[in-house]
Design a protein around this nucleic acid. Sequence first.
RNA 1: AGGCCCGUAGCUCAGUUGGUUAGAGCGCUACGUUGACAUCGUAGAGGUCAGCGGUUCGAAUCCGCUCGGGCCUACCA
Length: 887
Amino acid sequence: MSGTSTEAATSTEMDKRFDPQSYEQAWQRRWAEKGYFKAEAPSDKPSYCIPIPPPNVTGKLHVGHALQSTLQDLLTRWRRMQGYNALWLPGTDHAGIATQLMVERHLVTEGTSRQQMGREKFLARMWEWKEQYHGNIREQLDLLGASCDWTRERFTLDAGLSRAVREAFVRLYEEGLITRGEYMVNWSPVLGTAVSDLEVETKTVQGKLYHIAYPVEGSDERIVIATTRPETMLGDTAVALHPEDERYLHLHGKAAILPIVGRRLPFVPDAMVDREFGTGLVKITPFHDPNDFEMGRRHKLPGISVIGPDGRMTAEAGEDFAGLDRFEARDKVVQRLKDEGYLVKVEEHTHNVGHSQRSGEPIEPLVSTQWFCEMRGMADLALEAVRDGRMQLMPESWDKTWEHWLTNIKPWCISRQLWWGHQIPAWYTEDGRCIVARSFKEAAAQAGTEQLTQDPDVLDTWFSSALWPFSTLGWPDDTEDLRTFYPTSVMVTGFDILFFWVARMAMTALHFTGEVPFYKVHLTGLVRDAEGVKMSKTKGNVMDPTDLVGEFGADALRFTLASLDSPGRDIPLNRNQIAGYRAFGNKIWNATRFALSRVGEDARVRETIDAAGLAAPERWILSRLSRVAAEVSEQLEIFRFDEACNRLYHFFWGDFCDWYIELSKPALFGDAPRPQVGDVVLTVLDRALRLLHPVMPFLTEELWQRLAGHEVIHPETICLAPYPRREEGWDDPAVEAGMDALIQVVTRVRALRAEMGLSPKAKLDLHFQADDDAVARLLEEQAPLIRFLTRVETVTRGAAPEGARRDLVAGVEIGVAVEKQEMSDEERGRLVKELEKLDGDVARAEERLSNPDFLGKAPAHVVEGGRAKLAEMKERQAALRSSLGLS
RNA sequence: AGGCCCGUAGCUCAGUUGGUUAGAGCGCUACGUUGACAUCGUAGAGGUCAGCGGUUCGAAUCCGCUCGGGCCUACCA
């Protein structure tokens, strides 16, 4: 590590190019050893806590994680420097389905399966995996510079969290909110488990609509029924029609005969039937369609399960079909209908079909005994919390979506037919009683016997995730951590898991703790590739954060991600941009290198500096610094990471490097000494690095350690140094105005030189006049600097001589006199064009300023500004006309 | 079907409660090895703010409609 913070560490040791690899991980290790990121409980400081959205324990971080981690770390570091007792609480999720699938796929390559292994052995294997991959997440977060408190790391299946899960389950059960029952669920035949509504993805598919004739009992009449799923007819138990449908009034009280099977299907009138669709008659399959299930309940119809959990037809489907895959059965049923003359017609039909989000196949709605959690009451709490502002969604455009989803919430199917997860704390006695308890011991006591069998199902992963903000802090116990950090401050996560996770955390938190889980939710967009296309393995456009860190350094990646996080927008990540911010890192590096080589031996970082005795350039940069410090925190307060980064970028590169360093050169080189220049350079660098530290932690620490006198700010590390704030004593609007004029004059002179086609070395003289005397005096005072920056021979206050090229910027009239030279046609043309445009602007401004409506209704300052502007435009008009030799 | 978001320079995006000549980065053009940085410097070109209508003294900004793109929710068998 080069950051040894010794006096000897000077620019002579600094490479011309910065090399993030050479110091990033060294600092990460040092910070960890020193324990800088360990939060206190209890603490006298105000608390700030961000619970990490726990990544999959066996997973790999993708750029979306990198984005969210960057923002969380940025906030945590910023608050820590501001003096908060900041805790970024890390952890991982067992991710039931995903992880189990991963291991099961691996087992296939070994020629075995979880069924062959049995539950106990399989789980042992899962834990081995977990142990093997567990370190990956931390490694990758370390690469990014994450300042997590690893002493508080949690895992959703660890003892503490498992206890919280059982406690929550038992309480909800005792409150009657968790129940077990036989309902229609979304079944994934591939996964072999029920899934929640959220895990079903609706896809529009091109299917077929089959029209089937059903004979009417006791007559020759045949009615026609349309269906997209003919195989389910084997489980039909009724035919529904609209009660007022005049076409079918004669069918009331009668029954149809189910083709192939011969079952008698009573006609049931139900207003839910759409008379316009198909024939207005609907087959009812209570056990294989959610609507039919409801209708079956209303009309007390029996149900028949003809499709089993494996997606194959059951014995009840009849011996011709039993054992067939559901889609094979469809073909066979259609063939039979055709053969037997029941198939009327087949139409192409586009419709929406639910697919399993995780495994891709069409979801099979079927009836199954599962555990459900009633969410209505908890949803109302979550609605209320956002409505009254206790919990704030950002951007707040999500409020409506929040309202809509929570208003229409349905019971949550929380049981999964998996093994990897929290096994449901319910036990069954031999005589079939169900005991829900916190432990086997408690269950046995309640049951009066130890002959108990635990429910084999596990809970939906999101059930444990829902408790994350408080379970990680020790709930249900009343712990010091919980008292110190709960409710937590911010949740940073993707909008894609707003309902899966954020809403459920809000609901359980309000229910169990009576408090919101966090005060603010910052929802990020989706990271996309440079073309705006969603990254996916199949498209091959995935960018791996680890590779990006290797190529550009963590700081560049962090800065890029943070600066792209604009509210409500996706993030198009593009390598050029990361390279651009790596260049920014190089700029910071070289600016520091230059400063250290020139400030002189006595220069030191100062806690503060009295601006009174300083020259204008120093007063200017301190004033700018003060303003930027205020703005950056303002932007971070409202989660405008993009704006905060922009301010930092432009301050450092624009104000500090492009102008201040240039302005300080004559002083630093001893050509025109100014008071305390070296101290100012170091002090500005110190604060600028501190301002940048939350975004670029490594580079800033590496450089800050080299600044002579940095110890007065903090003895050990920039991580714990105070975050710079506005410094009232440095605010100097007058000097900012004057220096702004100077900058514009310099820029304009350079432009004129280029426009006039003069070589950079051509000799010329500058004259200037300004209405504002303070500005004029500053320009006069700083004439040597103007000469240095524009390479003019002389700078004179006063009117420009005849024939000078004239212009006006920032209220300063300038004239550039050059030895007699013909104006080129090109230059003349450009000037004429410029003048024409100005003439138009003047005309428009005059018109507006003579409009009584405008004068009467617009606020005074707008009118005032318009007049000043017009006056200036006219002056410039005159200057340009003079340049052209027009009177 | 309902809801939400987006459409601004070649590209990716900022633009606060309506108020000067609409900004940035990258890219592009010209010039430049002046004692930090070619991962650089100086200057420049480039936009009828998707379209139409309305409100207003004044609209990229507010309202309505149209077109285009994306996302979420939904039981049309």
